[in-house]
Simulated assay, not measured.
Amino acid sequence: MRLFLSAVLVAAPGALHAQVAPATVDTPVLVRVIEKGEPISPGDFAVEPRPASVARGAIAPIEAAGLEAARRLMAGAPVRAADLAKPQMVRRGEAVTIALRSGALSITTAGRALSGGGKGDPVRVVSLSTNRTLDAVIEGSSRVRVTGQ
């Protein structure tokens, strides 16, 4: 990041006082509006000068790559870590395929997710055939796995 310092001297007749403009820093900002849940790529960023106070906490485009917006993000705004989340492969209320695997045995059934998350995250699901709530682990998009109990 480059730091630009500038100062403006404002002088009125009979009075002297200086007004200092805030320092600016080259900051990665969004070039378009990103909706909640939408994935972010390095191409969504441009570098523009912003006051140092605004640039504080902004993350680099490469750090944001592959993550998704945790809320609606406006164009021209820097992105902070709290604005991003890892991609959700299962969302709350979504239909899922529940798989139970034990050795050579594999059973699948339809279900509904009670919470969301990314690959490898624990999630609670309801089996539509038995109406039982189960603890599962997210395997992929709309797919969860339960262990034999």
Rank of each mutant, 00 (worst) to 15 (best):
V25T: 13
A46C: 14
E68N: 03
G148H: 15
T147A: 14
V29K: 00
M1N: 07
L134W: 02
R71L: 07
G66R: 10
F4K: 12
A58E: 12
V54L: 10
S129G: 08
L16V: 15
L114F: 01
L134G: 00
T97Q: 10
G93T: 00
E48P: 00
D44H: 07
G76D: 15
S115A: 08
A85M: 02
Q149D: 09
S115P: 00
Q149G: 11
M74I: 14
A18S: 10
G111C: 02
A136N: 06
V8M: 13
P61T: 11
R2H: 07
V31M: 10
L3N: 11
G120V: 12
R80F: 14
M89K: 14
S115M: 03
P51Q: 00
A55E: 02
P49H: 10
N131V: 08
Q149I: 10
V126S: 02
A7D: 11
G43K: 07
G93A: 04
L114A: 03
A12E: 06
P122F: 09
L5P: 00
A18H: 06
P39S: 13
A21Q: 12
G66W: 07
L84A: 10
P49Q: 14
K119S: 12
F45A: 01
P49A: 15
A11D: 12
R72P: 14
D121Q: 10
D135Q: 11
E68C: 13
L9E: 05
L84F: 08
G103F: 02
R72C: 10
G140V: 12
I138K: 06
A55F: 05
P51K: 09
G93P: 05
G140D: 13
V144L: 10
V8E: 04
M89Q: 06
A55V: 01
P61M: 03
G103V: 02
R143V: 07
L9T: 08
G148S: 08
K36A: 15
G140E: 11
E63T: 11
G93F: 00
T130V: 03
P28Y: 06
A65K: 14
V33N: 09
I138F: 13
S106Y: 12
E48F: 08
S142P: 00
V8H: 03
A23L: 05
P122S: 03
Q149K: 15
K36H: 05
L84K: 02
A70I: 12
R112P: 01
A7P: 01
L9I: 11
L134K: 00
S106N: 09
A104K: 12
P49M: 08
S142V: 14
R145W: 11
S6C: 09
R50V: 06
R80A: 06
A64I: 07
A18E: 09
P87H: 03
R143E: 08
A81S: 10
R72N: 08
S142D: 04
L134P: 01
V31K: 09
A110Q: 13
G118H: 05
V146C: 04
Q19D: 08
A69K: 11
P28S: 11
T133G: 06
L134R: 00
G103M: 02
E35Y: 03
V144M: 04
A21K: 08
G57S: 03
A113D: 00
V126P: 01
L134M: 04
Q19A: 15
